[in-house]
Amino acid sequence: MAHPIVTLRAYGDGLRLIIRPNLSITEIEEAIQQELARMNPPLSETSVQIDMRAPVLTDKELERLKTKLQKTYNLQTREVASPDETAAPVVVAAPATHTISQTLMLSHNESSEQSRIVPQTIRSGQTEDFPQGSLIIYGDVNQGAEVRAGGDVIVLGALRGSAHAGTNGRLSAVVIAMELVPLHLQIGNYINPPLLGQKSRGYPEIAHIGSKDIIVVERFVKF
């Protein structure tokens, strides 16, 4: 699976732009444009943190990117995290005037996406893979079974096996289950929330990537 060139993700009260290393500025700009074009409603007036875990751009190129983000998309670059300064990122731009909440992220950026309904329980040894979009399962996902979706994974039953949402690297993907007791849970390249245990808590739950770079599980009320 190809790692996306850029990844946009909710982070704290703004967005984080993660850039894959060793690419040219034109490739990155193109990827940013594609990623932002998918957003509905369009993002604007949001603060952005550029995350470069490996050296990617020269200072000049970075400056050009920041200007472009500001001018074209009305996005303000707040800070840049680079490998040397991950501990204390430098604050670059002004604070956000508008924040994107988790819930808004969930409901609006997959409108053009397909989904597939699986009308039965997925049993041990069976796999459901749907890279084009979200999976909805009318049944359980038992231990030893695996569900993988490019978008969200929604289980209208008990999720006891393995689930991987956002297989294409989309970190806004979520996993929802009436009983969320998975053996493994993966969203994008993030694996496993803090121990959930194998006992159901008796209400539906949602797993998503929280602001602190971990998978968060909470009671699911609505999108």
Binding site: I122, R123, S124, G125, Q126, N142, Q143, G144, A145
Partner: peptide
């Protein structure tokens, strides 16, 4: 039970 589940699927 896990093995039984696999067999049921098959």
């Amino acid at each position: 039970i896990r093995d039984a589940d696999r067999i049921i699927g098959l």
